[in-house]
Simulated scan of single mutants.
Amino acid sequence: MAKNEVKVLVACGSGVATSTIAQEEVKRIAQEAGVPVRIMKGTIAEVPAKQADVDLVLTTANYRKPLDKPHMSVFGLVSGVGKAKVSAQLAELLKKILAE
């Protein structure tokens, strides 16, 4: 059964700065991909607890611990390095999760 939206956690070190920038980019990418999203923000430290409430975890910092949910680094959306590639990968991932 397909979902009607994808719940996304955007996490950065502080839960404020880079996750806010990334959140706006994620909204734009999701809109362009035609995928409704609900975005929550948090800190890297909150990821293990908050992943239970979301379909996808996006981080702006390196995150190496195993997760139960799909995870992707979106640092490129903040830094601009490889932004097009990160945007395309994220759009595909969002579409895949929505269809599950």
Rank of each mutant, 00 (worst) to 15 (best):
A61R: 11
R64V: 13
V54P: 04
I39F: 01
L93A: 11
D68T: 07
I29Y: 08
D68E: 11
G13Y: 08
A33M: 10
A52H: 12
E5G: 12
V57C: 12
K95E: 04
S79G: 00
V86D: 00
A61K: 10
I97T: 05
E92S: 13
D53M: 13
A2S: 14
P70A: 07
A22S: 09
S79M: 04
A91Y: 05
I97V: 10
T43V: 14
V10Y: 01
P66T: 04
L77E: 00
A45I: 13
V47M: 11
A17E: 09
I97W: 05
D68W: 02
S87G: 07
E25T: 08
L94Q: 09
K3R: 15
V86E: 02
K83A: 06
A17C: 10
N4K: 15
A52M: 09
M40W: 05
E92K: 14
V86Y: 00
M1Q: 15
C12M: 02
G13C: 08
A49E: 11
K69C: 02
E5W: 12
V35Y: 03
V8A: 08
A84G: 06
R38P: 03
L56M: 02
K41C: 11
A17Y: 03
L67C: 04
D68S: 10
K96I: 01
V26W: 01
A11Q: 02
V16F: 13
G82N: 01
V74H: 05
I29T: 11
K83P: 04
A99L: 08
L58M: 04
E32L: 15
K65V: 09
A61F: 07
A11D: 01
A33P: 07
I29Q: 06
S19M: 02
G82W: 00
S79P: 04
L94S: 06
K7S: 10
K83S: 00
E46K: 14
P66F: 04
V16S: 14
G80L: 00
V74F: 00
E24L: 10
A88W: 07
